[in-house]
Amino acid sequence: MRYGYYPGCSLHSTAAEYEYSTRQVCEKLGITLEEIPDWNCCGASSAHSTSHLAGVAIPARNLALAEEKGLDVVAPCAACYQRLVTADYEMKHDPALKAKVEQVMDRKFNGTIGVKSTLEAVVESGLEKMTKALQKPLKGLKIACYYGCYLVKPPKIAHVDDPENPMIMDNIFRALGAETVDWPYKTECCSGSLVLSNTDITLKLARDIMQIAADSGANCIATPCPLCQPNLDMRVAQVNKKYGTNFDLPIFYFTELMALAFGVPKADLKFNKHFVEPTKLLADL
C-alpha cells in the first residue's frame, strides 16, 4: 500500500522516536509512506477552539495536497488524525461548509481520498505479515494498550476501533508475543490538550492512568498518541513528587515495540530519548 504520509508537528520535534519507528514498521510491512509535500500543522485544539471554519480549513489544506497526489492520507499522530478525519467528514457532509473551506484555502477538495491512522494502516496489512516479520517475540512484556481519545472519539467520525474497549493494538502485541492487560482506561483522556495551560489537571489524569495500568498488572504502556506519550513519560517525576507515588512504567509508542519485535536494533530506536528509560525492562530483548 502507498499512502500520503502526514507526520504532523510532534513527529518532527518532541516525538522523533515515533517518526523513526513508524517508518521502520511501515517499511517492514510493505507500506510505502510518501510525505505530503509542504504539509502544514493540523491546527490541534487551538484552531477549532477559536474558529470553526479555520478549524476545518487548516487541516483541509493537507487533504487537498494529498488529493492532488491521488493518495489516501495516513497519520501516526492521534490528534492530527482526528483533526484530518473531522475536516474530511464535515466537508463530505456539509456542502455549504465545503464551499467556504475551499474559498478560504483557495484550493479545491473533491473528497476522493480518505484518512487513516497509522495504527489502522498497520493492522490492515494483516497479522500474517506481522508474524512473518517477527524476529524477537516481545516475551515478558505486559502491555497496557493505551489508545487515548482521539483515535476513537467521537465515534461517528473517529472510528479506528470501539470507543470503550478497542482491541486492535492488543491483537498486534499478542501476535508479537507480548501479553496485554485488560484494563478500563484504554480510552481515558490524558488531557494532553491542556498541558500548556493547566498542568495540575494533567498531573492528576496522568497519575490515574499510570495507577490503573500498574494495578492491572502492566509493566509498560504503549500508545499511538504523541500527546499521551510525553504527557505520561515526561511527567512521571512530577506525578511522583506531587502524589508521593513511585511509578516507573516505561511509556512506548506502539511502533517502537513493533520495530523491536521486527528486529530493528535497540540502539537505533533511541530509547534514551525517553524520560523513563526502559533499559531494565528490555534487557532480555
Binding site: D38, W39, N40, C41, S51, H52, L53, A54, A57, I58, R61, K100, Q103, V104, M105, D106
Partner: peptide, 19 residues
C-alpha cells in the same frame, strides 16, 4: 518554514473575515 506558510496565515485571516 513551509513554502505555503503564507497560505496558512491567509486561511486564518480569511476564515475570520468570512465568519
Amino acid at each position: 518554514k513551509l513554502k505555503g506558510a503564507n497560505e496558512v496565515k491567509k486561511i486564518i485571516e480569511a476564515a475570520a473575515r468570512l465568519e
